[in-house]
Simulated scan of single mutants.
Amino acid sequence: MPRLSGPGVSTEAQIVSGIRAAILLARGKEEGLRHALLSMEGTARSFWAGALCLLPFLAIRSLGNDALLGAGLPAELIGYVLGWVAFPLASLALVDASGRGPLWPLFIAAWNWANLALYAALLAATLLGALLPPGVANLLLLVAFAYALWMEWFVAQKALRISGVRAALFVLLDVALGLFIASLVGRVGG
């Protein structure tokens, strides 16, 4: 776990460091964990990643379907916020069950910052896919989703210092919550 400094770490410094963490984690560098959490407030500040990911999220959703038109936008935004809140809360019980409770702040900070890279990869695949034949575009999106799953697994394994199998449980939890939230958004917005 990184050495946590006192409250002297500014929000801006944590965001810059979080972006650095995302870049390193995206490349499979465990060193990114050192940048994910600079202070005791770092976990809370890592939720700034959600604000930074909002525009890529909206772009991906608008390019993928018409869900953002009309009554769908409020439902999509509520689902987006739920996604950023539900996983950290649900993961706390799984982290405790794994005997890794003290590592939860680092894990959530790294998980949040890693989402910058995940959204960048998914947005790039979506934009490039719009220019390619449907079969190639679908394959590209599948590769981007596989990368996203790998990165979530990597962050869980490294931040919590757990086995690959246990890390997969965190990825499954995130996927299950994402599917549940998507079904709620579909019912409310559709």
Rank of each mutant, 00 (worst) to 15 (best):
T126P: 13
G101F: 10
R166P: 05
G190K: 10
S62G: 09
L127A: 13
V155E: 05
Q157C: 14
L52A: 07
P102S: 07
V175Y: 06
A168T: 11
L160G: 09
G135T: 11
L55R: 00
L140V: 09
L122A: 14
R61D: 02
W84S: 08
L122V: 12
G164S: 10
V165M: 13
P133Q: 08
A109M: 12
R3T: 15
M40L: 14
E12M: 14
S98G: 14
I78W: 02
G18K: 10
E152T: 08
A71Y: 02
A110N: 12
A124K: 04
A144F: 11
A59P: 02
A75N: 03
I23W: 14
L24Y: 10
S163Y: 06
F57A: 04
A130N: 11
G129W: 08
A36S: 15
V155M: 09
G189S: 12
A71L: 06
G8D: 14
N138R: 14
A21N: 06
G6W: 09
A130G: 15
S62Q: 03
H35D: 15
G129D: 05
N65T: 04
L173F: 04
S39L: 14
Q157G: 15
L58C: 02
G186L: 04
V85Q: 07
L58D: 01
L58V: 03
A176Y: 03
A148H: 11
V188W: 00
A156G: 06
G186D: 03
E41R: 15
G64L: 01
I108P: 04
T126K: 08
L68G: 00
A26G: 15
A137L: 10
V165N: 09
A148E: 10
H35V: 06
L141T: 09
L55E: 00
Y119L: 08
G83T: 02
I162W: 06
L94N: 06
I181R: 01
L106D: 06
L58E: 01
P134F: 07
L25S: 07
V171W: 11
L149N: 03
A182H: 09
K29C: 10
G28E: 06
A144L: 11
L82M: 13
L37K: 12
V171Y: 12
A137M: 08
A167Y: 07
L69S: 03
G135N: 10
G79Q: 01
L127W: 03
L128C: 08
T126I: 07
I60K: 01
T126V: 09
G164K: 05
I19C: 05
G178T: 03
Y80P: 08
L54Y: 01
L52W: 01
G50A: 04
A109S: 14
F145P: 11
L73Q: 01
V143R: 04
R3G: 15
Y80A: 05
A146K: 07
L92I: 12
G178I: 02
I23R: 13
A114S: 15
F57N: 01
S91N: 02
